[in-house]
């Protein structure tokens, strides 16, 4: 019961008034529903990719090499690791360990940025060395760059958001009772991670 250990007294105490508690419920539910619809967006593109992949041209299509699994595995571990650090950032916040929270958040941002760097490296390699492009490489380029690019954009947004969280936390915007921004950031970051589990398996492992 992590929550109980910091929320002393009733929900009315310490500035977490009834209005905040109820509004937080609404925002939480709204945010989860937003993630659901975002998930549908990814699912649609994943469906498109699998549909095109099975349309009889073989995979990878002629003229295109397999993706580099070793590098992707390493890069994925960076992102998965950032999921774990983010989880502990929220845990530490709930337990009131502010400095540990800040360090975990910083680790998360570094790992997320590292993943983006790895993806940039992979893109460059594909485009420069293997002449694979978004528009000129048939359904491979279309599905790979669209899906991973969309995911990369989500990671980028996440890194920006976590940086804002870091600054806000340093400025004392969040309190022991009112920290929905941190919860939402954690939910979003986990979501981005989990999408990558799916993308990693369908692009690199099958």
């Amino acid at each position: 019961m992590a929550v109980a250990s910091i929320a002393h007294g009733s929900a009315h105490g310490d500035g977490a008034d009834q209005l905040y508690v109820e509004t937080r419920e609404l925002r939480l539910q709204g945010f989860l529903l937003f993630l659901v619809s975002d998930c549908v967006l990814f699912s649609s593109f994943i469906f498109a990719y699998l549909y095109l992949r099975n349309s009889g041209q073989g995979w990878p299509p002629p003229g295109i090499k397999r993706l580099d699994v070793a590098f992707a595995a390493w890069n994925s571990v960076l992102l998965f690791g950032s999921g774990a650090t983010m989880h502990y950032a929220l845990e530490n916040w709930k337990h009131g360990n502010f400095m540990k929270y800040m360090w975990m958040l910083i680790f998360t941002i570094i790992l997320g940025a590292g993943f983006l760097g790895g993806q940039a490296y992979e893109y460059t390699h594909l485009i420069v060395a293997e002449h694979v492009s978004w528009w000129g490489s048939g359904i491979f380029g279309a599905s790979f760059f669209t899906l991973t690019g969309m995911h990369g954009f989500h990671v980028f947004v996440g890194v920006c958001y976590l940086t804002v969280l870091l600054l806000q936390s340093a400025a004392g915007v969040y309190t022991g009772q009112k920290y929905f921004g941190i919860t939402a950031g954690t939910l979003y970051w986990h979501f981005v991670d989990v999408i990558w589990v799916v993308l990693f398996s369908i692009f690199y492992l099958i």
């Binding site: 699994v69 998965f80 989880h87 986990h190 989990v194």
Partner: peptide, 16 residues
């Protein structure tokens, strides 16, 4: 999410 994250880690190990 943690469950899926652990699953992803296993995938990464198996790919490794």
């Amino acid at each position: 999410m943690l469950l899926l994250l652990g699953f992803g880690a296993i995938l990464a190990i198996l790919a490794g």
